[in-house]
Amino acid sequence: MPDSRSAGQIECQNCRVRFMRKNSTGRPPKYCSSQCRSAAFRTRNTEAAEADYSREAERIGQAVATRARMVAQSSSLPMPTWPLEPLRHSVALKRELDDFIAVSVREALDRGARWEDISAVTSMPVSQLQVRYSPVQVSKAVDARRGRRPRQHVAPPARVAVKPAATEDVPGGRKPEGWEARHMLARALSNLHRFSGQSARAIALRAELSPSYVYRLTAGERHPSWKAVRNFVLACDGEPNDLVDLWNAADGQEQLLPDGAGFDDVLARFQGAVRGLHLAEARPNPDAFVHALPDVAKHEISIMKSLLSTSPARRSGTLSWTATKALTVALHGDSDRIRQHWNALRAAAPRSRLLTQAFG
């Protein structure tokens, strides 16, 4: 049987020796002695002191400038779209400034400044500065910023052709040019919002948009910028690449990667275009959906199911146009647009794959 005393022992986070806590109330201790606590503190300070804050200072400085512009813009409006918008930007600006001051203090010390010099500039006592801007405290602030950064996204490449879209209805009750593309983009955004399980206000906060603007996006009342769409998708924990082709179609753009793009890039663009259509149709079950398609060979069924998944569908380069068109039509997409992506994918696919399909 295990020793009953060992069950109540705690492992010291510095020397890893197990010890019994002296008091049964309060927060459990992390260290077995004050010497271990001091040693751990010195280790953290040494590790944090080795950090280079120059890159962080540049990033935070850019964030401060962006937030300052947002404050100026929201304060200049006679009636903000959202009553709390100026306050939200101001609070965010203060947080950015606090972080910038923190890394600037550490940078100044690295460049030879004394605590007394910093005290004269900040009008803060040296003792208070040394506690607030210790290497450990500043490192925590930097780590917290990194945790708040959105994940990397795939931005759309340069536009290659422009077809201006009309913005008003034409006589005779017909829909304006590009209306269907904009409506499909709005459906995709609305479905993404619903799948995220978040409120419009929560998404607006994460995407740095107003709640009313989020409502207009999902209702198709506004044609948004790519930045607004990207931020919206990231706030919903989605993949921006899935919305690139829908956004370009709504914007009246022919969207293709430049000549010489690698197979992986072309594949990602083709898969994103198809997944965007799938999202606009509320993501019907891929298994049942694909099996119901006409004129699809048996070996192409698994390829199309992987095409609609999140993992790269590397065998998509062997899909026939007949199967690809059947999938596009079933998803109510533009066959001409998807054909461009399909042609680019076939051209970029390694020859061995195409020869295997042709002669195998």
Score class of each variant (00 low, 15 high):
residue 209 L to C: 00
residue 141 A to D: 11
residue 173 G to N: 06
residue 195 F to P: 05
residue 226 W to V: 00
residue 149 R to I: 09
residue 136 V to I: 10
residue 202 A to V: 15
residue 210 S to G: 14
residue 226 W to D: 01
residue 152 Q to F: 06
residue 187 R to I: 04
residue 156 P to I: 05
residue 198 Q to P: 01
residue 221 E to R: 10
residue 166 A to D: 11
residue 161 A to R: 13
residue 181 A to N: 07
residue 208 E to G: 09
residue 215 Y to M: 11
residue 200 A to S: 06
residue 223 H to V: 03
residue 142 V to T: 04
residue 225 S to W: 10
residue 158 A to F: 03
residue 147 G to P: 03
residue 158 A to Q: 12
residue 179 W to D: 13
residue 208 E to A: 10
residue 222 R to M: 01
residue 194 R to F: 06
residue 218 T to M: 05
residue 187 R to G: 00
residue 197 G to Q: 03
residue 150 P to Q: 05
residue 155 A to Q: 12
residue 186 A to K: 04
residue 164 P to C: 02
residue 203 I to S: 07
residue 156 P to H: 01
residue 134 S to W: 01
residue 175 K to T: 13
residue 143 D to H: 11
residue 226 W to L: 02
residue 152 Q to W: 10
residue 202 A to I: 08
residue 172 G to H: 15
residue 170 V to R: 09
residue 141 A to T: 14
residue 226 W to E: 07
residue 188 A to I: 01
residue 146 R to P: 09
residue 228 A to G: 09
residue 168 E to F: 15
residue 154 V to G: 05
residue 202 A to R: 09
residue 179 W to N: 09
residue 136 V to Q: 14
residue 191 N to H: 07
residue 186 A to F: 03
residue 146 R to T: 12
residue 170 V to W: 08
residue 184 M to H: 10
residue 167 T to Y: 06
residue 228 A to R: 04
residue 162 V to H: 08
residue 157 P to T: 03
residue 139 S to W: 13
residue 165 A to H: 08
residue 200 A to M: 12
residue 154 V to P: 01
residue 192 L to M: 13
residue 167 T to A: 12
residue 174 R to P: 04
residue 207 A to W: 01
residue 193 H to M: 15
residue 199 S to I: 01
residue 181 A to D: 00
residue 161 A to M: 12
residue 209 L to Q: 02
residue 203 I to H: 08
residue 186 A to P: 07
residue 181 A to S: 11
residue 153 H to E: 11
residue 142 V to W: 02
residue 226 W to C: 04
residue 175 K to C: 09
residue 168 E to I: 14
residue 156 P to L: 01
residue 222 R to A: 00
residue 212 S to R: 06
residue 189 L to H: 02
residue 207 A to L: 04
residue 204 A to K: 02
residue 193 H to T: 04
residue 135 P to N: 06
residue 164 P to W: 05
residue 218 T to H: 00
residue 134 S to V: 10
residue 180 E to N: 11
residue 155 A to M: 10
residue 187 R to S: 10
residue 154 V to A: 14
residue 142 V to Y: 00
residue 135 P to R: 01
residue 190 S to I: 04
residue 191 N to S: 04
residue 144 A to E: 13
residue 194 R to S: 13
residue 145 R to E: 04
residue 137 Q to L: 11
residue 168 E to L: 15
residue 183 H to P: 01
residue 157 P to L: 02
residue 218 T to S: 09
residue 138 V to C: 08
residue 174 R to H: 14
residue 207 A to D: 01
residue 161 A to F: 08
residue 136 V to C: 13
residue 213 Y to T: 10
residue 184 M to C: 07
residue 204 A to D: 05
residue 224 P to V: 06
residue 143 D to Q: 13
residue 169 D to E: 12
residue 160 V to L: 14
residue 196 S to W: 05
residue 176 P to R: 05
residue 222 R to I: 09
residue 159 R to N: 13
residue 210 S to Q: 12
residue 135 P to M: 03
residue 165 A to F: 12
residue 215 Y to H: 13
residue 143 D to Y: 02
residue 162 V to W: 09
residue 214 V to D: 00
residue 159 R to A: 14
residue 141 A to L: 15
residue 204 A to R: 02
residue 221 E to Q: 12
residue 182 R to E: 05
residue 210 S to C: 07
residue 191 N to E: 06
residue 187 R to K: 05
residue 158 A to D: 12
residue 161 A to Q: 12
residue 183 H to M: 02
